[in-house]
Simulated assay, not measured.
Amino acid sequence: MPRSSRKEPAAPPAPVTVTVCRGCCCGVAAKYPGVDHVGQVDRLRAGVGAAGKVRVVDCLDVCDHANVVVVSPSAEGRRAGGRPVWLGWVFQDDMLDDITGWVRAGGPGVAEAPGVLDLQAFEVSRRVREGLGGASAG
């Protein structure tokens, strides 16, 4: 029987991914009672829209920087040299707006991050990066 010449549709290119830590320290009302932790995730999802995806994880193992958000580049951003950007102490709505605006503009490797996010950015150890693996670890 002859093989079909039809090709499977290509997978869509990987979008910008926003990873939100909601483990033992991040997203916990006992530690940060004045922050609407569920509302933050909803706001990120609404703001990112179709420009990327938002995922929630249990713990990113960088509790000293709680509340942590990692913005990982799209496939296009990676090809352009973009790497995941780790942001700590993300509490304010304007920070969430800066993150979602950056994602809609293309994210790491495609668009320049709003300057105010530089104050939130931090580096993670190789141990943490290697322990996480996958898209958010870079």
Rank of each mutant, 00 (worst) to 15 (best):
M1K: 14
P2S: 15
P2R: 15
R6H: 13
K7Y: 10
K7Q: 14
K7H: 12
E8Y: 15
E8Q: 13
P9C: 06
P9S: 12
A10S: 10
P12S: 12
A14E: 15
P15I: 03
P15F: 02
P15M: 02
T17H: 11
T17P: 06
V18L: 08
V18H: 10
T19D: 02
C21N: 08
R22S: 12
R22L: 11
G23C: 04
C24P: 00
G27R: 02
V28N: 15
A29S: 14
A30T: 10
G34Y: 12
V35S: 02
V35A: 01
D36H: 14
D36M: 11
G39Q: 02
G39T: 04
Q40K: 12
Q40T: 10
V41N: 07
V41E: 02
D42L: 13
D42P: 05
R43D: 03
R43W: 05
L44R: 08
R45E: 13
R45G: 08
R45M: 11
A46V: 09
A46T: 09
G49H: 07
A50T: 11
A51H: 11
K53S: 05
R55N: 04
D58N: 10
D64S: 13
H65S: 10
V68S: 00
V69D: 00
V71L: 08
S72K: 04
P73M: 09
S74E: 10
G77I: 09
R78Y: 06
R78G: 07
R79V: 03
A80N: 15
A80C: 08
G81V: 03
P84F: 07
V85D: 00
W86C: 02
W86M: 01
W86F: 07
F91N: 11
Q92I: 00
Q92A: 15
D93A: 10
D94E: 12
M95K: 13
L96P: 03
D97W: 05
D97H: 05
D98M: 13
I99K: 09
T100L: 01
V103F: 05
A105K: 14
G106P: 07
G107V: 04
P108S: 00
P108C: 01
G109I: 05
G109W: 07
V110K: 13
V110D: 06
V110H: 09
V110Q: 08
A111I: 04
A111L: 05
A113T: 10
A113G: 02
P114A: 07
L117C: 08
D118C: 04
A121W: 07
E123Y: 03
R126T: 13
R127L: 13
V128C: 06
V128R: 09
E130D: 14
E130Q: 14
A135V: 14
G138P: 05
G138F: 06
G138Q: 08
